[in-house]
């Protein structure tokens, strides 16, 4: 039974950065890039056009191109990439067992970088207008010509909804903020900025019901909660800011997760509650959620794994002596 030193699950900035560092440390990592589970291989940047805040690219860089380059760099240093979905992991035995759709791999150490998926409302019509007016990322898609000088709406009441609404005022003529309740969860500062912005209209107790249009989104149907009244709101864009779901279904009952389902890591390290398992990127971070922070924690996880594997090897040599 061949045993890998290190398996990396995930192919976003966290997974590939971990693979680059682990590859350079001659750990010959096996990277499960995924196929259709938890989003496309390459992660959320694959559906982002211009990345303008990744250092080193003053003119911006295309998300898919950036991911392609990271993958090439991982391959250059000896990472073995598998386009296969992991369907089960067993951290209760050593070496760990990682079962994918097409193969089973055993490994001494595992780095998890499976990321998070933006939540959707699953409105009627949503699938048809996804990326065609409806989006879960204003920062990604807000600058699209679809929204220039148009009316758009953001759904949500937290800080990220507020941020998205404020961001969209740069492009859209008017931004409606659809808030489910009669108050915002967003911080006081953000609330002040929102409520005083002449382009933003907050609609309290407002729930989207369905989306409509032709080849692109044209209007949505909304309900006023107290009265139950249904009305139509003409829109070119609808942005969801209702949170993310971490891709941690595989690890339930094995790793410590927080209440929202994110993997809990130990203090400043990326270590999980199981020695030999680390977590990096959005799967353990609901705060920053940036490509650069994912890459940073991917690097940390690989360095920690390298050190741990070296200690294990030294330990077993000492034990054998």
């Amino acid at each position: 039974m061949p045993i890998a030193k290190l398996v990396i699950i995930g192919s976003g900035p966290a997974g590939y950065t971990a693979a680059i560092y682990a590859g350079r440390a001659q750990l010959k990592p096996i990277v499960f890039e995924g196929f259709e589970a938890g989003g496309v291989p390459g992660g959320q940047l694959m559906t982002t056009t211009d990345v303008e805040n990744f250092p080193g690219f003053p003119a911006g860089i295309q998300g898919p191109y950036l991911m392609h380059q990271m993958r090439q760099q991982a391959l250059r240093w000896g990472a073995q990439c598998m386009t296969d979905d992991v369907v089960d992991v067993d951290f209760s035995q050593r070496p760990f067992r990682i079962t994918a759709a097409e193969q089973v791999v055993y490994a001494h150490a595992v780095i998890i970088g499976t990321g998070a998926t933006a939540q959707r409302l699953h409105l009627p019509g949503e699938e048809a207008f996804w990326n065609n007016g409806i989006s879960a990322c204003a920062i990604c898609d807000g600058a699209s010509p679809l929204f220039k000088g148009a009316e758009v709406a953001v759904v949500g009441g937290g800080d990220s909804a507020a941020e998205e609404a404020l961001y969209l005022t740069k492009y859209a003529r008017k931004v409606h903020l659809l808030v489910r309740r009669d108050r915002l969860r967003a911080s006081k500062t953000m609330q002040d900025r929102l409520l005083n912005h002449h382009q933003i209209q907050v609609r309290w107790n407002c729930i989207p019901l369905s989306s409509h249009g032709d080849d692109v989104l044209r209007w949505i149907r909304v309900q006023d909660v107290p009265t139950g009244a249904v009305s139509e709101l003409p829109l070119s864009g609808l942005f969801y800011a209702i949170g993310h779901t971490p891709n941690t279904q595989l690890f339930q009952n094995q790793l410590m997760l927080d209440q929202a389902g994110y993997i809990q890591t130990n203090g400043k390290s990326t270590a999980t509650n199981i020695p030999g398992v680390w977590a990096a990127g959005d799967v353990q971070d609901h705060h920053y959620r940036q490509a650069i922070t994912a890459a940073g924690t991917g690097c940390m996880a690989a360095l920690e794994a390298e050190r741990w594997l070296a200690e294990q090897t030294a330990g077993s040599i000492l034990a054998a002596a």
Binding site: F35, E36, V40, P41, G42, M46, T47, T49, P64, T83
Partner: peptide, 12 residues
């Protein structure tokens, strides 16, 4: 065009 899932599926 620019459909990452299409690229993922192509070799399969």
């Amino acid at each position: 065009p620019h459909c990452p899932s299409c690229e993922t599926l192509a070799p399969v």
